[in-house]
């Protein structure tokens, strides 16, 4: 954008091929569409069109032989979907297992992150010495790039030279010997802990901002009426945080459910007990190069997320209408 070259007031050409005089002084009705156009093109190119292509791919026998020439892949109808949901086959069994693991991880991570975030936000509401330091410190995990934070956890979870075993077994004597954390059943604990560590600061940040919008005289009025800390939390804070919570819980849910980065950096190949669905589909696609089947699984995942999201938002609307 060479603002020094073009005279002020002239819009840089946003629409390729449009005559110059139209761009220089667009009619008022046209201007907003021109302004929105670049964003529209970008979203169409990277999100919408690939999604439609993905839906088409899920109907093809798109195996490794057709990657470079996928239009030649034979049409398979709903075969891929049948394979993905046929509970007698190994593919569907693994997919359903991965789905259930992902649900369990998501429920725990969302609940814990929200509780931690609320606790920190409530307890940091009143000024005291060191409050600013804590507030900044709590935001650091959210600001760290995912892969550096998670690789640090990967190091901490190492069996022989990691910090977790040193702390739990050698210092606190809570565990016997040195258990594996990145293999077997403990990997479930590991993925939950790391996700909570990364996400609760976001809940904290959002709830802290939400608390600031609650007028202080409400608390004073409640205190004069004799309401204690717990009562004020239940009767003033939580009801007034509802609009914030509605969005926050949905965002936490979508982020955890769709998570690829954390599981991928923590395990590279996640064990069965931490087999998050995104990475399961990734492996099903890239290890076997069966993109058709992988796309069918992705479409099923999107359908599930759509149903949950719309149901959640619809239920919220109903409840607020009755309230």
């Amino acid at each position: 954008m060479s603002r020094t070259v073009t005279a002020p007031g002239e819009a840089p050409s946003r629409a390729p091929g449009a005559p110059a005089h139209r761009v220089r002084r667009p009619r008022r009705a046209l201007l907003p569409y021109l302004l929105v156009l670049p964003a529209l093109i970008a979203e169409l190119a990277i999100h919408v069109i690939p999604m439609l292509v993905g839906a088409w791919m899920s109907l093809l026998h798109l195996t490794q032989f057709f990657i470079r020439n996928w239009t030649a892949a034979p049409y398979g109808g709903l075969t891929n979907y049948r394979v993905a949901v046929d509970t007698n086959g190994p593919v569907a069994k693994d997919l359903i297992h991965s789905f259930l693991i992902t649900v369990a991880v998501t429920v725990l991570v969302v609940a814990l992150s929200w509780m931690f975030g609320l606790a920190a936000a409530v307890f940091l509401e009143k000024p005291f010495r060191g409050r600013g330091v804590l507030r900044t410190l709590f935001l650091v995990p959210y600001a760290l790039p995912v892969f550096t934070a998670v690789i640090t956890w990967r190091f901490m979870f190492q069996r022989d030279n990691g910090m977790v075993n040193a702390l739990l077994s050698d210092e606190l004597h809570l565990a016997h010997g040195h258990p594996f954390w990145l293999l077997g059943g403990n990997s479930f604990v590991a993925i939950v802990v790391v996700n909570v560590w990364r996400l609760w600061p976001f809940a904290f940040l959002t709830l802290m901002a939400g608390l600031q919008s609650i007028p202080g005289d409400l608390y004073e009025a409640a205190a004069i009426d004799g309401a204690g800390f717990a009562r004020r939390l239940r009767s003033v804070t939580l009801p007034l945080l509802r609009p914030v919570n509605r969005v926050l819980l949905l965002v936490l849910f979508l982020w955890t459910f769709n998570d690829f980065n954390t599981a991928y950096v923590l395990f590279e190949q996640p064990p069965a007990d931490a087999d998050m669905i995104s990475i399961h589909i990734y492996n099903a696609s890239f290890l076997t190069w069966n993109f058709g089947l992988g796309s069918a699984m992705s479409v099923l995942l999107l359908a599930f997320l759509l149903v949950v999201t719309l149901g959640y938002l619809g239920a919220g609307r109903l409840r607020s209408r009755h309230a």
């Binding site: 690939p50 999604m51 996928w70 979508l254």
Partner: peptide, 22 residues
């Protein structure tokens, strides 16, 4: 625009990969 945020990345990774290759 906002609803694209909820799409799982894996959903458009595979098609995008194929589109880029082609």
């Amino acid at each position: 625009v906002l609803s694209t945020q909820m799409f799982p990345g894996i959903l458009f990774l595979l098609p995008l990969f194929l589109i880029f290759v082609n």
